[in-house]
Nucleic acid binder design. Structure first.
Lengths: 221, 221
DNA sequence: TGCCAAATAGAACAAGTGTTTGACAAAGGC
DNA sequence: GCCTTTGTCAAACACTTGTTCTATTTGGCA
């Protein structure tokens, strides 16, 4: 109630537009069209609505993506940051969004963005302040460690590891998940599947990508 | 693995379509257009995508509103409740905090609030709008299904299930995780460990608590 | 090999939708 | 009274997008 409104009329309208959009998204799980908003706000011209939508965007109340259909997003708080990067303010410190940078297959190189970058939120307590990423498991070379085809592994980025750790490693240009260990003092990468053989770990060819610190499974069979 | 897929090819495609849509909505807070899905799924014809969208709708995986632009909604699970309840204005709907209501042990009753601190955030895409809770696994009666001691199971609350589902069930006043199935037409709860025997499922004593829809493991050994 | 059904592609159409332009009326300052 | 500003409306246009139809390809099977 201070400076920004010269007219009470427009104030009412923009508010109705905002409220309607907010409500519509809430109820329909998608943005209304400009004409929907016309109906809902009592305005009879798409152009009026258009005006207010641009204003609301400028005010930071909504995100309005020009040209796109039904593409309005409510920006709940001030949040100048892009919505994708921060989870609602209340929980932003508690969760982290990790992206799946590729699949790990026995004998097949890592490749990024296979389908569409898969990603999901992981509880902050799992990863702390370390840098992590996701890998999707393909194949069953680690089935003995109860890591299954389709599982997502949370990998903490690090370039060394301890004996017994399950790690993501690069062997030449192939990436796999194996258990790091030693036989007779010689370091090896051990698959946990009798059909595969341990791989000698020589620093010339092999490189630790990170340690497996968590596992998410969403395909339960 | 029974009737629904006649071809592996279409199976892959429909899966790609579904995953892409799911991901797109996740990242953009709005539905992709049919042509977006074309690009994202590798299909080159809008008509193919259209076919799959209708199938996915029939399967209950998505809600597809004919004629409407960018109107696809992911129906994560059965979810009889309206989607509107769990969609919200911003990305705050992307995570849900679930609490661990107890441990599940072979032969030991469920007990609630064992440890206050046992709760964490789970990505919304995993549970959709259904009601879920966590159970911590104790023991190895389901090791054959690669469910380990210390794992957290995400359980979707429901009081019936299909054959082959892994479920949390109450037997008398004891709670366990087992696979629900039938032998000679008689329903059983099957442990996935040779040291345990199948348990006849009689409705007088047994009760389904929910279905296992996810697994989080944070103690990797 | 030849046939059939499923999967996919390609093109065309119709409707929904964002955007722009111009006009009109009311309000307020000069 | 005249002019500017502001809020609103109406119509028109172009592009996006859902839908449908038909053709082509693919894969399995006899």
């Amino acid at each position: 109630m201070s400076e920004q409104n010269t007219s009470n009329k427009s104030n009412k309208s923009i508010e109705r537009v905002y409220n309607y959009v907010r409500n519509y998204i809430h109820e329909n799980a998608m943005s209304p069209s400009v004409r929907d908003i016309c109906t809902g706000s009592g305005l009879k011209s798409t152009s009026s609505v258009h005006t207010y939508l641009k204003k609301l965007d400028a005010m930071g109340k909504i995100e309005y993506r020009p040209g796109m259909r039904r593409a309005i997003i409510i920006k709940d708080n001030d949040s100048s940051r892009p919505i994708a990067d921060n989870v609602s303010d209340s929980v932003s410190a508690d969760v982290v969004r990790l992206s799946c940078i590729g699949k790990i297959t026995a004998g097949v190189p890592i490749y990024a963005h296979e389908d569409e970058s898969e990603s999901f939120y992981v509880d902050r307590s799992v990863i702390g302040s370390s840098e992590c990423f996701l890998l999707k498991v393909s194949g069953s070379s680690m089935i003995g460690a109860h890591i299954c085809d389709g599982d997502y592994l949370i990998i903490r980025r690090q370039n060394s590891c301890d004996e017994g750790d399950i790690v993501a490693a690069l062997i030449g240009d192939e990436a796999t998940v194996k258990r790091f260990g030693k036989m007779n003092g010689v370091p090896y990468l051990f698959p946990e599947n009798d059909f595969y053989s341990p791989i000698p770990f020589n620093t010339a060819e092999c490189k630790i990508l990170g340690k497996v610190v968590g596992l998410h499974r969403y395909s339960i069979n």
